[in-house]
C-alpha cells in the first residue's frame, strides 16, 4: 500500500529525514517510535504533504502512485489520512459544513453522488456514536474551544467519516487522559480492517497497550534503526532509547 524508499527531507534548511525505508501493507498496524526530534512528526507531515517540509531525495508511492505528484487534498482523497498532533482551531468554519464538504469532495473524487443533507446527518450520527464523540461538538466551529482530548477524539471522528485506506496517527495519545485514550483507541480498533492500514507515531508505549501493532520501528536521527514485532515496544519502555543509542555505538 505504502512504499517509502530512501526518503530525505528537510525543514527550514535543516535535514531531518535521512534515508527512510518502510513498506506498509493492507491490514497492518505499524508503530513508529523514537526519541524527541528523531523525525517522527516530520515523516507524518511529509506523507500528508505539508509545504513546510522539503523532500530532497527518495520516493513514496501510495497504492502504486507517486504521492509527490499529488497535492495534499488529492492524497487525502486517495485514502491517506493524517490525525494531527496539534489539530488547528478554525473559528467560523462549522464542523458540519467542513465535514460535509470533505465527505462530498471524497465522493466526487470517486465519481459517487454527493450525499444529501439528510443522508449526511445520518452518517454523522452513526459515526459519532461509533467513536463516542459528544454530539454537541459537531455544532461548533472546527476544534474551536475543544479541550485537548476533544480535539483528538474529533480527529478519530473525522477518520471514521472519511474511512481512509491509510491512517497516520501523529502522537494521538499525547495529552490524553486514560478514558480519552481508551475511547480514541477503541475508535481506531473499530475502524481497522484487512483492507486498511495504520501507522501510529508515538513517543510512549502506553498507546500500544490499546492498539496492538504488527511492527514496531525505531526512528532515530532521521533513519529507521531498528524494526521488530510488538515486543520491541515493551523493551523500549523498559530500557529507554539510550539502549538503542548504545547499540548503534554512540
Amino acid at each position: 500500500m505504502l512504499v517509502i524508499k530512501d526518503l530525505y527531507a528537510k525543514v527550514e534548511g535543516k535535514d531531518i529525514l535521512k534515508g527512510i525505508n518502510l513498506t506498509v501493507n493492507a491490514g497492518e498496524v505499524h508503530a513508529i517510535m523514537g526519541p524527541n526530534g528523531s523525525g517522527k512528526s516530520t515523516l507524518a507531515n511529509v506523507l500528508a504533504g505539508h509545504s513546510n517540509f522539503e523532500v530532497t531525495h527518495g520516493s513514496v508511492t501510495f497504492n502504486g502512485k507517486d504521492i509527490f505528484e499529488m497535492s495534499p487534498d488529492v492524497r487525502a482523497k486517495e485514502g491517506l489520512f493524517l490525525s494531527f498532533q496539534y489539530p488547528v482551531e478554525i473559528p467560523g468554519v462549522s464542523m458540519v459544513n467542513f465535514l460535509k464538504t470533505a465527505v462530498n469532495e471524497h465522493r466526487k473524487y470517486r465519481n459517487e453522488k454527493e450525499l444529501s443533507a439528510g443522508d449526511f446527518l445520518k452518517l454523522m450520527r452513526e459515526k459519532k456514536a461509533m467513536v463516542q464523540i459528544d454530539s454537541q461538538l459537531t455544532n461548533r466551529s472546527v476544534n474551536e474551544g475543544f479541550s485537548g482530548g476533544e480535539k483528538k477524539k474529533n480527529e478519530i471522528f473525522q477518520m471514521a467519516m472519511l474511512e481512509p485506506k491509510l491512517a497516520i496517527l501523529d502522537e494521538t495519545d499525547s495529552g490524553l487522559d486514560i478514558d480519552a485514550l481508551r475511547i480514541v483507541s477503541n475508535g481506531v480498533n473499530m475502524l481497522k480492517s484487512k483492507d486498511n492500514a495504520t501507522i501510529l507515531v508515538t513517543h510512549y508505549q502506553r498507546l500500544l497497550d490499546y492498539i496492538v501493532p504488527d511492527f514496531v520501528h525505531v526512528l532515530y536521527e532521521g533513519r529507521i534503526v531498528k524494526s521488530a514485532g510488538k515486543e520491541l515496544a515493551l523493551e523500549l519502555e523498559a530500557k529507554g532509547y539510550d539502549w538503542i543509542k548504545k547499540e548503534l555505538g554512540e
Binding site: 500528508a48 495534499p72 487534498d73 487525502a76 482523497k77 489539530p87 478554525i90 468554519v93 472546527v142 472519511l162
Partner: peptide
Amino acid sequence: ALFYLQARGINE
C-alpha cells in the same frame, strides 16, 4: 488551517 482543510480532501 489551510493545510488542515486540504488534508481532509478539500482543494486549496
